[in-house]
């Protein structure tokens, strides 16, 4: 169990205590008003807040493989501007990144390296399979290419296209943000850091 989890648990316990203590005081308020306070402020879990913060600060690893890497670079540039979604800080070291965009075909020789880079990333971490090749092998169904990077690492979002345009990749990033927010505070999010 990570430090963050302990903190989340501690705060949740604290909130529950608060809720019990404040119950009487809240019930004295007007009926419609008390409900709003009870639902929105006190029951908001810290996990949600953490998830919200995580989704807006995705740091992708600089992990260019093939053609798709060029479109990934285009996404970071001024025209597409991934900074609008907080995903523009490409980190050269996987140890500083929490998002791996597998941009291109993964060969049999690269697969162990990719797995290792994934293992080096700190938790929680997410993976986007960018393009047809990393999603399912694409047009290269042969001895050299791993037929989908999901055989090596767990994938959160698949972006189709050969190569997908930067707008498609941005849509993938937005979908991932939605997923992070949806999972936030839940058991799945907890497993990610376990």
């Amino acid at each position: 169990m990570g430090l963050m989890d302990e903190a989340v648990d501690a705060v949740e316990t604290e909130i529950n205590n608060l809720k019990l203590n404040a119950k009487e005081a809240i019930e004295q308020l007007g009926a419609e008003f008390s409900g709003a306070v009870y639902d929105s402020i006190l029951t908001t879990k810290l996990g949600k807040v953490v998830g919200w913060a995580q989704k807006n600060a995705l740091w992708p690893a600089t992990f260019g493989l093939a053609c798709c890497a060029i479109e990934m670079m285009a996404m970071a540039n001024s025209r597409w501007d991934a900074a609008r979604f907080g995903a523009e800080v490409f980190r050269a070291s996987p140890r500083q990144a929490d998002l791996m965009i597998v941009s291109g075909r993964v060969s049999q020789k690269m697969a162990p390296v990719l797995k290792r880079i994934y293992n080096q990333m700190p938790e929680p971490k997410w993976v986007i399979a960018m393009g047809a090749c990393s999603s399912c092998g694409g047009i290269f169904n042969n001895y050299a290419i791993v037929q989908g990077v999901d055989r090596v690492v767990p994938v959160d979002v698949y972006v189709p296209g050969c190569p997908p345009g930067p707008e498609a990749l941005l849509y993938g990033v937005i979908k991932l943000q939605e997923k992070i927010l949806r999972e936030a505070g839940s058991e799945q999010a907890r497993q990610r850091v376990a």
């Binding site: 399912c136 092998g137 042969n142 001895y143 989908g148």
Partner: peptide, 25 residues
Amino acid sequence: LIMPEGWEGHPLLRDYPLTVEEIAF
């Protein structure tokens, strides 16, 4: 040079299979 060390066979020989896999969608 290109294939990993310890790879069996030489891919561009005609009797080396292309090794097509079934993809599960």
